[in-house]
Design a protein around this nucleic acid. Structure first.
Lengths: 318, 318
DNA sequence: GTGAAAGCGCTAACAC
DNA sequence: GTGTTAGCGCTTTCAC
């Protein structure tokens, strides 16, 4: 067993409260400080966090739940969130729910069980509103005013992308993606597409359903075979954009097909081709998420929705 | 504040020890069991883990440190490890070290500080041998006998891949990848390449240095411009394989270039083209890692090295 | 089978 | 500025 605060107190010739004060930036005399510091070093003392957690009733850990860590978008957001949490002095626990409701529910219970101080919950499943006192934050998902949501500028970014295609001369612009079955900011991408097409007098071509990760190829294939007159496709994710590109190549699609994707995080790994993409600023989003959550944990006021700007990156696919 | 074991005890008309026994599968009479069960349900009681952790001096959490979560390989292995840890009843804490030594050192201190019961450490940095009593396990990396290492069949898989290319008629086979600066099982890929070339009487073409993630394109570009007579390239990772493919396409490489990659985890997302790849069985590797770590935590004997077989998948690039 | 009691390591009144 | 003390919620001897 490791040394405790009492061992240090004995060696430094002070009481354990003084050591505790020293550790917690309380007022301690210069001399005591010095003796405690030496004792800690000589004994190689490490504060035992279990005692601290019990006393303070906090773990200084937050938990993140995503449907699939290995998905490029979630992998990247996990990375950014971990970096932020670390900066704030919090550890990060991760859960891969695999879209599984039971795992998500157990995840939520963690905060009740006090294993973590708060949670970041990203899910495709439907849930009733949460207990508003629960420190919980989400991305893209609208649970209601008591669950702060961090999202990107879905509507405007998509509208402008369609406008860009239109101005480039496209008149048959398709839309493909997985449709959230729940109230999600991501739906704005679809609304923006419809509005833009209406505004520019374009016909709409849509494949938007309850698709699962991994089914992108099948749906892309069906889509391009169903509509063979497209000159552009807007894909709601990199993964859909990539499969659209592949299918178009394979089937020697009649026209040169322009492609725009949303997300832009796969570009870190694949630049072949370099996609034109609406890149989400995941670093800023992660910061907002963690910052909001910690404010929530500390019972501070927070905004119920924060929109982070996106960046339009022109690649080789338009 | 939530209910405690004492509240339940009062309602169920037993002592708190009996409730504790009930919770920990101790012997409790049928009648007491029933009353306790009801009390727990009616009060919506959740066991407070901080008290438990303090008493047992365990957190039932393990931590994983990777150089970069968003890298497809690490994202996938993180996912598999999280799934396994969950099955074993452990939570998973993740740390993205960004290859940063200071963060890695702080990570290791976590287990000393008792915040986690054990750690899985994946690093490119050099470290002295660890305290052998520390519950630590690694992937691919050889720290010495006291740090169990889970790895794939690097040597044989690579040797057979080169053999496959040779039998397909390739005589100028290149090798590109990031060279570990430390004692790593991954070096076996290089040794196998050299041995195979020697055995088959082939000249070697190598680009193998201390490359960073993100520099793949630059090195691939240099490599293919330096050697323009290759008919095949073996890449030590998917990411290198992809950039080699891109460069070859861009520069209209003189010959049809066959490509084989190691890892195979990017194929989940990109099948354009479908790469011929040596696919690591990350599910099995993750299981071995977690299983070994938990055995270690429970002071059981473990093997110091476990080799998991790979699968050779023939795609469109050979 | 059950209860009383000690104690895990820590923090924070409170009194001095 | 410092020490004494109580207690966070839990598990686990030890008696009975």
């Amino acid at each position: 067993m490791g040394k405790t605060i009492v061992d240090i107190a004995k060696i430094a010739n002070v009481s354990k409260s003084t050591v505790s004060r020293y550790l917690n930036n309380g007022y301690v005399s210069k001399e005591a400080q010095e003796r405690i510091k030496q004792a800690i070093e000589s004994e190689n003392y490490e504060q035992n966090s279990f005692g601290r957690m019990l006393k303070l009733n906090r773990s200084f850990a937050i938990a993140l739940c995503v449907p699939m860590i290995s998905h490029p978008f979630f992998a990247k957001i996990t990375e950014e969130i971990e970096n932020c949490a670390y900066e704030f002095g919090y550890k990060l626990l991760v859960t891969d729910s695999d879209n599984n409701r039971a795992r998500e529910e157990e995840f939520i219970r963690m905060v009740y069980k006090n294993q973590v101080d708060g949670i970041i919950f990203i899910t495709h499943n439907k849930y009733e509103c949460f207990d508003s006192s629960l420190p919980i934050v989400t991305i893209d998902r609208l649970f209601g005013d008591n669950v702060p949501c961090i999202t990107s500028d879905n509507y405007n970014a998509t509208y402008n992308a369609i406008k860009y295609l239109f101005e480039k001369g496209c008149h048959n612009i398709g839309f493909i993606g997985g449709r959230p079955l729940v109230n999600s900011e991501v739906l704005e991408r679809y609304h923006a597409y419809l509005d833009a097409c209406k505004d520019f007098g374009l016909q709409t071509y849509v494949s938007y359903g309850d698709f699962r990760h991994g089914e992108e190829y099948t749906h892309s294939n069906e889509f391009l075979h169903k509509y063979t007159n497209l000159d552009a496709v807007f894909a709601t994710s990199d993964t859909f954009g990539f499969t659209i590109y592949r299918v178009a190549t394979e089937m020697k699609y009649p026209q040169q097909l322009k492609i725009i994707t949303y997300d832009g995080c796969m570009s870190d790994w694949i630049q072949n081709p370099a996609f034109t993409t609406i890149r989400q600023d995941l670093k800023s989003m992660a910061f907002k998420v963690v910052d909001t959550l910690i404010k929530r944990i500390n019972k501070k006021q927070v905004e119920s929705k924060i929109v982070v700007p996106t960046e339009f990156i022109i690649g080789e696919t338009t």
